[in-house]
């Protein structure tokens, strides 16, 4: 019995360490998306990937969508062959939850340029990556290694006016990484609303 407890604690310990950490392989996932298809990490092997944790009702997400900052980033980098995945980990009944149909509508209304909007109401993908906030950004290189994890930029204000003066970490990571240069900042503290997992 005690041995069982030890074992489960041990396993729990291992899971807790499974966050997406710069320098480590990105956690694999398989989940449905707003487009009705199933998306896997392995579908995009060999490509640069951005994972963007998304919650349509979070003021900090609105900061970047309302100002078109996020859409512009999506457009610029998907244009360079980057796969951009917005992930919604809001559980049903929580702020920002959408079903596939509504997610499609929101994506259309906000003119999102993301490759896909992944739906993760169980929080499995979010927890595998250790997503704490929306937005929480992860950049994955073509080898499947996490090269950046953290905030979208260096200003945690909710005021969209500050965006112009902010340093965008995701753009910096992609620009450097895609030119085979060293990525200077690989990990920052994410800011925003807490990811709305089920209780």
């Amino acid at each position: 019995m005690k041995a069982l407890v030890f074992l489960s604690l041990f396993v729990a310990g291992c899971i807790a360490f499974a966050d997406a950490v710069p320098g480590k392989p990105a956690p694999a996932f398989e989940t449905s998306a707003a487009d009705g298809k199933t998306h896997k990490l392995s579908d995009y092997a060999g490509k640069w990937i951005v994972m963007e944790w998304y919650n349509k009702d979070c003021p900090y997400v609105k900061k970047h969508y309302g100002s078109n900052n996020m859409q512009d980033l999506q457009k610029k980098y998907t244009g360079k062959g980057v796969v951009w995945l917005s992930v919604n980990s809001s559980a049903e009944g929580k702020e920002g939850y959408t079903d596939a149909k509504e997610a499609m509508k929101v994506a259309k209304d906000t003119k999102s340029n993301a490759t896909a909007v992944l739906l993760d109401p169980t929080g499995v993908v979010g927890k595998a990556y250790g997503s704490k906030t929306t937005p929480h950004m992860f950049v994955i290189d073509p080898k499947g290694t996490v090269v950046y994890a953290g905030a979208i930029d260096d200003n945690n204000s909710s005021d969209p006016k500050v965006i112009a003066k902010s340093k965008n970490y995701v753009a910096a990571a992609l620009d450097a990484g895609m030119e085979n240069k060293k990525i200077e900042i690989t990990s920052t503290k994410p800011y925003g609303c807490g990811t709305k997992y089920a209780n």
């Binding site: 979070c58 003021p59 929580k94 702020e95 204000s157 909710s158 005021d159 609303c193 807490g194 709305k196």
Partner: peptide, 14 residues
């Protein structure tokens, strides 16, 4: 002044 008040959801203010 800029602030953020949260329960689970958050409301910023300026």
């Amino acid at each position: 002044l800029e602030w953020l008040v949260c329960k689970e959801e958050c409301i910023p203010g300026i």
